[in-house]
């Protein structure tokens, strides 16, 4: 694949190295040519110095026939604009914008941009690292407010049916693991204490689920 990466900070540099070592054709853009110093000497790709929101700079980097375009500068709005130039002006099929501000990320996600918010991802990963014994929360990447929850079923819910803990449009049990066996349950499936259940949930009703599963802060 031909991939253009704009912004050679830590993420941009590492991404460029990974993709280059996998044999992809990589071009990197940064306003500061010193940023390229951190690319190893055996980097095969192109290095373009310039402002990546500028369509001419994008063209020089080969954006017109790129398969993917990634924006990873430290400035959210620069990333948002450059991503839209790549997507709408050059028609790049896969464009990913890194956006730190999670609210801004939500909106531009809604507007059709593929976005990654490292703040949200990082916060949930750290949360899971310190609270993994209660339940694991993972934001669903393709949505704004849905999460995947993995939790052990508490004793007091033993014998309940899946439908007893579901609620339409808010909570759905999508997988169940019992004694090493996985299954996709339906509403009639009986639950057993110790089952690991995977639930898709709307973030707004999280406190209700925590109460149901008997998880205290």
């Amino acid at each position: 694949m031909k991939i253009v990466i704009m912004g050679c900070g830590r993420v941009g540099i590492l991404l460029a190295k990974i993709l280059d070592s996998e044999g992809h054709k990589v071009a990197v853009i940064d306003r500061d040519s010193l940023a390229f110093d951190d690319l190893c000497e055996d980097f095969q790709g192109h290095m373009i110095t310039g402002n990546g929101i500028d369509a001419d700079v994008q063209r020089e980097a080969g954006t017109a026939d790129a398969d993917a375009f990634v924006t990873a500068t430290r400035d959210d709005n620069t990333n948002i604009m450059a991503a839209q130039v790549a997507k709408e002006i050059f028609g790049v099929p896969r464009v990913v914008a890194r956006i730190y501000d999670s609210e801004r990320e939500h909106i531009f996600h809604e507007l059709g941009l593929k976005t990654i918010c490292p703040v949200t991802v990082g916060a949930f990963q750290i949360r899971n690292a310190i609270l993994a014994d209660t339940l694991r929360r993972t934001p669903l990447e393709t949505t704004n407010n849905l999460e995947l929850i993995e939790a052990a079923l508490p004793e007091d819910l033993d014998g309940k049916k899946v439908r007893d803990i579901q609620s339409p449009g808010e909570v759905r049990v999508v997988a169940l693991e019992r004694e090493g066996l996985s299954m996709i349950p339906n509403g009639d499936t009986s639950l057993k204490s110790g089952d690991t259940i995977t639930i898709v949930i709307s973030r707004d009703v999280m406190p209700r689920l925590q109460a149901l599963l008997g998880i205290k802060a």
């Binding site: 929101i53 400035d75 709005n77 948002i80 604009m81 450059a82 909106i107």
Partner: peptide, 16 residues
């Protein structure tokens, strides 16, 4: 003085 900020302000105003 930044085109990217002007773009984002206008897009948020309009669409949000």
């Amino acid at each position: 003085g930044h085109d990217q900020d002007n773009l984002v302000a206008c897009q948020l105003a309009k669409r949000k």
